[in-house]
Design a protein around this nucleic acid. Sequence first.
DNA 1: TGGTAGTACCTTGTGTTACAAGGTACTAGG
DNA 2: CCTAGTACCTTGTAACACAAGGTACTACCA
Lengths: 110, 110
Amino acid sequence: MHEESLEQKRSQMRKGLLEFCILLVISEDRTYSTDILKKLKETDLLVVEGTLYPLLSRLKSQGLVEYDWEESKSGPPRKYYALTKKGKETLAELKKTWKGLSASISSLTD
Amino acid sequence: MHEESLEQKRSQMRKGLLEFCILLVISEDRTYSTDILKKLKETDLLVVEGTLYPLLSRLKSQGLVEYDWEESKSGPPRKYYALTKKGKETLAELKKTWKGLSASISSLTD
DNA sequence: TGGTAGTACCTTGTGTTACAAGGTACTAGG
DNA sequence: CCTAGTACCTTGTAACACAAGGTACTACCA
């Protein structure tokens, strides 16, 4: 409510792009959650654990990503995620959508 | 659910940008709902009435837009919307956010 | 041995919101 | 006066990000 509406709108803008960005990050290299969080913070897309875990599960159950367990020297084992074939195809489509969208909006912002 | 997930992701991408785009459209010129819907369709951002009306009410109650009634020759009177001072300020901030975001994502898509 | 810190996984509850569907009411033309 | 076109709005539903809380593994050290 109240006067945090600007920040609320900002996070709303990020929201819709989240899933897309996570697919992008995973497509670069197999990674696990903490790493993903770190990379997204670097690119201005704040996410928290409570958002990321359910999202990864969703992508898994949609067959877009898969994971392997890997031991860690500094704690419990990690789930390393990678895109499946279907995930790569979906990502390619989303990139097109993104290009179209960002072009449309850029034309409005002038 | 099932295999509409691509389209679902697409619409999810559009979602977060919707409010921003509506502010953009209104900033160009005072308009009313049907006109807004038309313009958004031209730029790939599909919206429906059931989404737009509550959204406009929300923007109104946040003090970002205001409206005047205007008679129409082809039906009931229309609410013509325009940005308030606060709306313009907010939009300027959102434009910055958009620039940052789109730059970040573009750097990932290469 | 057992206590603390760090890391990693996951779940539950809440509020927001887009959308589908349905509803009211005004104008104009036949 | 009845239909078509236009414009406004509401209700119910499902998805989703986030906050908060929880479990469990490793390593270090007293």
